[in-house]
Design a binder for these strands. Sequence first.
DNA 1: TAGGCCATCTGGTCCT
DNA 2: AGGACCAGATGGCCTA
Length: 348
Amino acid sequence: MMTKPYGKPGDVTELVSSLGWMDEDLSSQDGDRTPEIGHYSLHRSNRGPLEIGSEDMDEEEEEEEDEEMGLDGEKAPKRRGPKKKKMTKARQERFRARRIKANARERSRMHGLNDALDNLRRVMPCYSKTQKLSKIETLRLARNYIWALSEVLESGQSPESHGFVEMLCKGLSQPTSNLVAGCLQLGPTTMLKLDEKCGVPGAGVPQGHPISYPSPGLPSPPYGTMEASHLLHLKGYKGPPYENSSPNECSSGTPPYDGPLTPPLSISGNFALKQEPSPREAERNFTPHPTHYISSHPYPPTSLAGLPAPQGHPLFPGSRYELPLDMAFEPFAPSHIVTSQMSSIYSE
DNA sequence: TAGGCCATCTGGTCCT
DNA sequence: AGGACCAGATGGCCTA
């Protein structure tokens, strides 16, 4: 039987009210949300060595009793091993201070992670401040994007093709697929073709977005490890492994799409998106590199400096790229692939 | 109202 | 000892 290790919120509230340090903890928060917790440890006191909840006890006596007696008053076996260190007031305070510091670090760490995700969102083929991709969808789309671009480099497939869009949308939820499709502004022709693949409304097949992957209901596909080698070197590899989803499955419903978010398939345009500080960055007075996006960052990337400028890259025809400086242009495919591909382009 | 997503706290583990 | 990282748990917010 599964048992929850923690008490219910109601229990917590009661207990919190009896403890002073909770309020102190809450007031120490600096996040944009008001953390309402800090009291879980009350219910964890029987899980670990720390007895935070015993703060108000007459420490020594109470601890002895707890060890001797079970919760229901039965005699409990004496605990073996090293005797638990007593939680003196000083120890509790030290622990509390340490915990508060650790919480702050953890918050900051997660903020950093979120900032990185925001940066990732900005270089995705669809970026909207109003309709942000969820974390998981951002990662999925990023993976697909790398994959799709690699495919473009490898096979010369046009990024205008619906195959490219299909690759981008593989494994994404339907709303995200719709978002991507909207961003790429699929024309009616493309949509029709995709409709044929996924089923035309009224044709006795599920109606849905043409490029919806995977199935409705969306248990997330298993995203196991998929190494670049799988992507790029396995001949005949036709996409990431979606064990539980069929690429032909379509789902129904069309989430709202709030207008074009990025230029239609304008990869270079996407690069050129001005990078504004995320709300959190702004909040924390985070200042991105002053030239986060330099106005005319020349192609080629630094790793290819010295090579003659290309006359129209198949992927980025005639563009000058504006890259965030913190995106060391290790482009979107593993560098060795891109480098070799690009070298051949440059040498042409 | 259920479910998805998120931020936060927390304790454990590993590393320096 | 202390920091980084991680996963579990929880509650809030939002949307279908």
